[in-house]
Each structure stands twice: as C-alpha cells, then as structure tokens.
Design a protein around this nucleic acid. Structure first.
Lengths: 229, 229
DNA sequence: ACGTCACCATTGAACTAGTCACTTGCTCAC
DNA sequence: GTGAGCAAGTGACTAGTTCAATGGTGACGT
C-alpha cells in the first residue's frame, strides 16, 4: 500500500527520517524517536529501521547510542564527506593527498585573509597558541580553522575530509619526518598574514608550507618503500 | 566468543568484508559471497550482515543486486565522497558550492595543462565534442575529465563530489540562466590551453568561466528568493 | 542447428517473535 | 546530601520464515 518509491524499503525509511529531521528543524544532538516508534510510523519492522539507520550512521547523519536512543549527527547537512571505511592505503595515495591540499589550500588561505571575521581569527589564534603550548598534533586543528575562516562551509568540508582521510597513515608518517618547530613557525606566519588581511602573502606562505610537507612526505616514502620496489 | 573489538557487531562485519576485498585484491564488479555465507563466516546472522552491507552501500563500497548477489563497488578506495543523503538545501549553499569550485578548479586546470597524458587529452576532447554534438548537460563530464587529467585521483574525487552533490538543484538553476553556447566555447578554450600545455592560460580561462557561472547563479538566486526575503 | 521463451533454483528483501545488554534515572539506605 | 543499587526503557542481535527478483537452463518451435 505504501508509495512505491525507488529503491528498497530501507532506503525509503532513511529518506523519511532525513526529511523529518529537516522538517522539524532538529539540531545536532537532538533525539529522534525510538526504533520501534519509527518502525510502526513507517509501517516496517525494527530490523528494517536499523538498516536505514546504519546507512545514515555511515555518513554521521545520525548517531546510535546503545541503551539511550538515536540522535542527530552533524553529517546530515554536509555536501562532501571523508570515506568512513578506511581501507589500508598505498603510500602513493598519501602523497596524492598532500598534493591535493597543496593545490587547494593556498587559495583558501587567500580567501581567509579577505573574509575572516574577528571570531574566526580568534579561533585560529587559539589553534596556534594551543599547539605551541601543548606541543600536540597541531596541524590538523590549524588547517581546519583556516578553512573555516574562508567563510565557505563547503571548502571547510573538503579540507576536513582530506585531513580526516587516512589520518593514521599521515600521523605515522609525520611522526618521524617533521620537526614541529618549523611547523609552528609557519603556522604563525600564515596566521599573521590572515590577521593583517594580506591575501597574497597568506597564499604564498601556505604554498611553501605545504610544498615542504609534500617534499618531506615524498622523501619519507622513498626511504620506506625503496627497499621492496 | 568473538574478539571484543570496538563498536557493534555490524561495524566489525563491515570492516571484515572490506578487509577481505582488500586481501583478495577484488576489483570493481567482482562478486562477494552470499549474505548467508558471510553470516556464518563471521558468526552472525543474516540481518546483521545486511546492516553491515547497508553501511558499505551508503558509500558505494558494495552494491546489492536483488536476486543476484553482492558486488564490489567503486567507493571502497575513495578518500572523499559526496553525501548520498540529499537534504533539500538552501540556495545560499548552491552559491557556496560554485564558489568552492571557483577556488579549487583553476589550480586543477593548471595541473592538467602540465601533467595531462595523451589519453586524458583524448577523453577531454571527447567530452567537448560530445557536448557540442548532442547538446546535453555537458558541463559535468567536461569538468570531471578535466580533474582526471590533473593526474591526482584525490582532486578528481573532490570535484566529482562537488559536482554530484546537489546535482538536481544545480541542474534546475542552470536550466534557466545559462546559454549553452558560451559554456561550450569556454570549455573548448580551456581544452585548447590544456592541449597546448599552457598552465597559466588554462588557469585563467577556468577562473573566468567559473566566475561567470557564479555571477549567473547569484543573479538567479536573487530573482528566485528575492520576494520572500 | 539455432534462437526463443517458460520455468525454476538461487539469492537478496523483509517480516515476526523473541532474547540479550547497555544506559539512565529514580529510589532508598546510609 | 550522597552514593549504591534496582528497574524501566532502549538499542543490539538472534532465529526462522516468507516473498520477490534475477539469471541460468532446458524444452520447444523454427
């Protein structure tokens, strides 16, 4: 009796849940009805609802907390996502990842220097400070905040996806190849260019920063894979 | 009895399936074991396997064909994906989408002019010709081939994601605002710059091409939403 | 000998019914 | 007031079964 949409039942339920999130203007963290409730609401059984929720969970559109409930996640409104299914990856791909950032991020830095707000600048400053103080991972947060300061959420999502993808491989690589000091100095320089609204300078600093990262990555790959190639 | 990994059973099964795809060097289109087979192999029941497969289906890592079997999809090795759950979107986001492309694609055109192979050039030429001949959507294929010619699969995935996301909204917009003739001329000009290995020219032509698209999109949004804002 | 079509085994899709395990909040003893 | 513990609610998973789509196989007609 149900409307014969396209695709399976689970897909239609997923679309329905998403539609409800949109119509009721639910925000991230808000709770959804229980699985059983959704099941009878859509005229299907719990396992089918679970399939639909798994599909939405893959893109972080919903979050399932065992024993608690189903909640809205931040992935519902994104246009581009990192692949949540990390297949082990060839070293060559890590290099492609860095080169993609080298192609994209300088322009973003330029946009950030032009369109940043005071609040975004503050968050960027905090990222620089935090990394200097704590001596932790550093890079990830800085580059995310830089992308956020561009004012374009889609660009932020792209950079966020590139930084998230293959995070573990990147971490393993960077652990042995980079001295953090230079990273921090370069980050600070980029920050200052953004603060002073100097697009060209921010762009160029970001380009050299990532070019060095690429060179280090390539060098590391040579020494790592050189023996069996 | 199973190893207490992290997350639910379905998540572990999904990881296991993915691992098997990787270990057995399966290619896109290859068939996977049946649901029942996978179920007993992982020591779970069919519904749980189905949940895992739904999760993988969301990113196009596997494809389920009713009555036939489960097959490997192209999404298993991607690093960035378009959001498969299209929530209706505000017009402002469409503008952000175009502006993101404006920030990213010129650099890609430059890379394509530098690193293109003859085969990639041929595919790009075919995209231009096909659009001119058939008078069909055009843009999508051209920009995809252009990104492919950059030689960086990650950049291709980024552009592909931006073109896929909100495809219907973009189509609806472009239908009324663009005369295809100018699009084709500009595409052809970009193609010639790539063919002649002129990075700077390819970059600049792409920039103006997308800048015009952005302007048209912005104008269209004004007339569309102007009345109720 | 060759092509066409009906048939059927295989396989995914979904349901029903039920058990298990985790979370949370409330109650009650201290 | 505070903490331990109980109990209701909820998601996670199982087991067995029915339905529907696919794709190959073999009979049939040409």
């Amino acid at each position: 009796m149900a409307s014969e949409g396209s695709g399976g039942l689970a897909e239609r339920v997923a679309a329905g849940v998403l539609q409800e999130i949109d119509e009721r203007n639910l925000a991230v963290g808000d709770g959804l009805p229980t699985v059983r409730n959704l099941a009878e609401r859509f005229g299907v059984t719990p396992p089918t609802v679970r399939e639909a929720l798994r599909r939405l969970q893959a893109t972080d559109a919903v979050r399932l907390r065992h024993g608690s409930g189903v909640y809205v996640g931040p992935g519902a409104w994104r246009t581009v996502l990192p692949n949540p299914n990390s297949v082990p990856v060839r070293g060559e791909q890590v290099l492609h990842l860095v080169e993609a950032r080298l192609a994209i991020e300088p322009g973003i830095a330029g946009l950030a220097a032009r369109h940043r707000t005071e609040e975004q600048l503050g968050r960027l400053a905090e990222a620089v400070e935090h990394a200097t103080r704590e001596r932790v991972p550093a890079g990830r947060n800085f580059h995310r905040e830089l992308a956020a300061a561009s004012g374009n959420p889609v660009l932020f999502e792209v950079i966020d996806s590139l930084l998230t993808a293959r995070r573990e491989e990147q971490r393993a690589l960077r652990r042995r190849i980079r001295d953090r000091g230079r990273d921090h100095d370069q980050h600070r320089a980029i920050f200052e260019a953004v603060r002073d609204r100097s697009p060209a300078e921010a762009e160029e600093l970001t380009r050299t920063h990532l070019a060095e990262l690429r060179a280090d990555t390539a060098a590391s790959l040579d020494t790592t894979e050189g023996k069996h190639r």
